[in-house]
């Protein structure tokens, strides 16, 4: 009897230790992280390491590297990237919606429609504002009124003397 009680105690303890379904995924994640760390560390331990100036310079097909790789990009790329991101997110959200939208019924349809309308309004605004056009907007150059400034200088000269 005592033995039996002991085993039942053991099984409950074992059940507590057993992994849940998500626990298996956790073990996977842990193994993946460990594998990367161990592989990189072992490689670092074994590989030859003979750094020279030439080896560490930027690779430009054998040419001398010209300037820093940290060049300034045109700020207009920012708008393009932002618009791309918005439509990317739209696709990510809409594909699952499109797959099940018959089951979702009229409510699902309306929610999707509102989302699309909001995006369309945003797109219309971008278009109106001219963010979709690549051509550089005309810059109104500041002009210097020479006569007035010389007059001011004359007045300054008068007051000074």
């Amino acid at each position: 009897m005592t033995l039996l009680a002991g085993t039942s105690n053991f099984t409950t303890k074992f059940k507590k230790l057993m992994l849940t379904e998500f626990g298996k995924i956790f073990v996977f994640i842990l193994t993946a992280a460990l594998f990367v760390v161990v592989a990189i560390y072992v490689a670092k331990l074994l590989r030859p390491k003979r750094p020279t100036f030439e080896k560490l310079t930027t690779y430009e097909c054998g040419e001398n590297p010209e300037g820093s790789p940290w060049v300034k990009f045109n700020i207009r790329f920012y708008v393009v990237a932002l618009i791309f991101l918005i439509f990317d997110v739209e696709v990510v959200l809409l594909i699952p919606w499109a797959l099940v939208y018959k089951q979702l019924g009229i409510v699902g349809y309306l929610i999707g429609a509102i989302f699309l309308i909001l995006l369309a309004v945003g797109m219309a605004y971008e278009w109106k504002k001219g963010d979709l056009e690549w051509a550089r907007p005309k810059i109104k150059e500041p002009t210097l009124d020479l006569i007035k400034s010389t007059e001011i200088k004359k007045e300054e000269f008068k007051t000074a003397n």
Partner: peptide, 29 residues
Amino acid sequence: RQSDVIIISGTVTFKMAIRIKRLYEQMPD
């Protein structure tokens, strides 16, 4: 950076020799 062997396949002009030297130097041991 990812290579182990360089096959010099053809005429090495003086202009190219400089580049070959640099490419060779940039290969990992």
